[in-house]
Amino acid sequence: MTYWNGGWAWMTLMPLLWIALIGLVVWAVVRLTQHSAGRHDATDPRKTPRERPEEILDRRFASGEIDADTYSEARKRLAAHRPGPGDRG
Results as ranks from 00 to 15, higher is better:
Met1Ala: 14
Thr2Trp: 07
Thr2Arg: 11
Thr2Tyr: 08
Tyr3Ser: 12
Tyr3Arg: 13
Tyr3Leu: 13
Trp4Ala: 15
Asn5Trp: 07
Asn5Pro: 01
Gly6Ile: 10
Gly7Phe: 10
Trp8Arg: 11
Trp8Gly: 13
Ala9Leu: 12
Ala9Ile: 12
Met11His: 14
Thr12Leu: 14
Thr12Pro: 01
Leu13Arg: 10
Pro15Phe: 07
Leu16Met: 11
Leu16Phe: 14
Leu16Asp: 03
Leu16Tyr: 09
Leu16Gly: 07
Leu16Trp: 13
Leu17Cys: 12
Trp18Tyr: 13
Ile19Met: 13
Ile19Trp: 11
Ala20Arg: 13
Ala20Phe: 14
Ile22Cys: 11
Ile22Val: 15
Gly23Pro: 05
Leu24Asn: 14
Leu24Ala: 15
Leu24Lys: 12
Val26Phe: 04
Trp27Ile: 11
Trp27Glu: 11
Val30Ala: 06
Val30Asn: 03
Arg31Phe: 09
Leu32Ser: 06
Thr33Trp: 10
His35Tyr: 07
Ser36Glu: 11
Ser36Gln: 09
Ser36Trp: 09
Ser36Leu: 08
Arg39Met: 10
Arg39Asn: 12
His40Asn: 12
His40Met: 14
His40Asp: 13
Asp41Asn: 02
Asp41Tyr: 10
Thr43Asn: 09
Asp44Arg: 00
Asp44Ile: 01
Asp44Phe: 00
Pro45Asp: 00
Pro45Phe: 00
Arg46Trp: 04
Lys47Asp: 02
Lys47Leu: 12
Lys47Phe: 04
Lys47Gln: 12
Lys47Arg: 15
Pro49Arg: 01
Pro49Glu: 06
Pro49Ser: 05
Pro49Lys: 04
Glu51Gly: 04
Glu51Ala: 15
Arg52Leu: 15
Arg52Glu: 15
Arg52Asn: 13
Arg52Met: 15
Pro53Glu: 11
Glu54Cys: 04
Glu54Pro: 00
Glu54Ser: 13
Glu55His: 14
Glu55Pro: 01
Glu55Lys: 11
Ile56Val: 14
Ile56Pro: 00
Ile56Arg: 08
Leu57Lys: 06
Leu57Cys: 04
Asp58Cys: 02
Asp58Glu: 13
Asp58Asn: 09
Arg59His: 06
Arg59Tyr: 07
Arg59Gly: 02
Arg59Ser: 08
Arg60Tyr: 04
Ala62Thr: 03
Ala62Glu: 10
Ser63Arg: 12
Gly64Gln: 11
Gly64Val: 08
Gly64His: 08
Glu65Met: 06
Ala68Thr: 02
Ala68His: 07
Asp69Ser: 09
Thr70Ala: 12
Thr70Glu: 14
Thr70Arg: 12
Thr70Lys: 06
Thr70Gly: 02
Tyr71Gln: 03
Tyr71Thr: 00
Tyr71Lys: 00
Tyr71Val: 00
Ser72Trp: 02
Glu73Pro: 01
Glu73Gln: 09
Ala74Arg: 06
Ala74Tyr: 05
Lys76Tyr: 04
Lys76Leu: 10
Arg77Thr: 09
Arg77His: 07
Leu78Trp: 05
Leu78Thr: 00
Leu78Arg: 02
Ala79Ser: 03
Ala80Asn: 04
Ala80Thr: 04
His81Asn: 08
Arg82Trp: 03
Arg82Leu: 05
Arg82His: 05
Pro83Val: 01
Pro83Asp: 03
Pro85Cys: 01
Pro85Thr: 04
Gly86Asn: 05
Gly86Cys: 02
Gly86Ser: 06
Gly86Phe: 05
Asp87Ala: 08
Asp87Phe: 03
Asp87Thr: 03
Arg88Gly: 05
Gly89Gln: 08
Gly89Leu: 09
